[in-house]
Computed example of a mutant assay.
Amino acid sequence: MKKFIYLLPLAILFASCTSQKNSEEFINKTSGRYLFNANEVLEIYFEDDVMHAKWRGNDDIKLLKVNDSAFYMQELNEKMLFVAKPEMHIELAEKVEHDGVKYYFQKMEEGAKTANEYFKAEEYQKAKEAYLKIQKKDSLNFLIEEYKINRLGYQFIRKDENDKALELFKINVALYPKSSNVYNSLGEAYFLKKDTVNAIANFKKSLEINSENKNSKKFLERLTQK
């Protein structure tokens, strides 16, 4: 810890003596959006050849140039290294606090979005594919926890946004096809959309997985009674 505290002011002092301008080639290579985590983006852009970033609602973060490929971001209290190979990405410089962990932020392809961005844009198929990709890479990622997605779906229902709830529950079914609860929630969404056929199908599926799901039983009896 002490080592980092002593070295950081020296790095900032050195950076203050370095021209903050960047070459056109470097600007072209590094401008763009980087995955900060599975569902969050750090965007790099330039004004008057000086590097800036957009991150977590702050659209004008100026990065301090340390050398031609390293920049200090005060908001993260990190020195970021821009590495072109094997493909353009950002690495955080080694630091005592990292405890040997390497941080790697991949540059996104032009036009690519995060799972959440696809969902907000109502590109639901792409959103589902993006969530499945997160699960394949890290099945324990907090962004794809079943109960969190389900809870968000019911938040949409409370706001009378049943279409969004329906699409989110579909994604949860794709992520957790062996869960009784996700089929029950999808059945409820279809029920609210007055789609009786699909509501019944999903309540039945819920009960196939867990015959003791009381909510699915209740809805199925209500929908199938003569």
Rank of each mutant, 00 (worst) to 15 (best):
Q74T: 08
A53R: 08
E78R: 08
R56Q: 14
Q74D: 13
E75P: 04
S69T: 15
R56N: 14
L64P: 07
K54S: 13
M80A: 07
W55N: 02
N67V: 04
K79I: 10
K54Y: 09
L76M: 07
M73A: 01
D59A: 13
F71I: 02
Y72D: 10
M80G: 02
N67H: 05
M80F: 10
G57V: 04
H52E: 09
K79L: 13
K79R: 12
H52D: 03
V66Q: 12
N77P: 09
V50P: 03
Y72N: 11
Q74H: 11
R56P: 00
N58R: 12
D68P: 08
H52G: 08
D60M: 06
L76D: 03
H52A: 03
Q74V: 04
R56F: 10
K54V: 00
V66Y: 11
L64R: 12
N58V: 02
L64N: 10
I61W: 02
L64F: 11
V66F: 12
E75D: 10
V66H: 09
L63D: 05
L76T: 03
L64W: 10
D68E: 15
W55Q: 01
M80I: 03
A53L: 06
I61F: 03
M80P: 05
K79F: 12
A70R: 15
V50Q: 11
G57W: 10
M73K: 01
K62E: 06
E75M: 08
Q74K: 14
I61N: 00
A53T: 04
N58E: 09
W55I: 01
S69L: 13
L64K: 14
D60K: 12
K54L: 06
L63C: 06
L76K: 06
E78L: 03
M80D: 01
D59K: 13
K62F: 07
G57Q: 13
A53F: 07
D68V: 02
Y72I: 06
Q74G: 07
D49A: 10
N58L: 07
V66C: 07
H52W: 12
K54H: 11
A70P: 09
L63W: 09
S69H: 15
M51D: 02
S69G: 13
E75K: 10
V66D: 05
K65P: 02
F71C: 02
A53Y: 07
L64A: 08
M73N: 04
K65W: 04
F71N: 01
L76R: 01
K65F: 00
G57M: 10
W55T: 03
H52Y: 15
I61G: 01
K65T: 01
D59N: 15
I61S: 04
D68F: 09
V66R: 10
N77C: 12
Y72Q: 11
L76E: 01
M80L: 15
W55D: 02
A53S: 09
S69C: 13
M51Q: 08
F71W: 05
Y72A: 09
E75W: 03
N67Y: 04
A53W: 07
V66T: 00
L76N: 01
N67Q: 06
W55G: 01
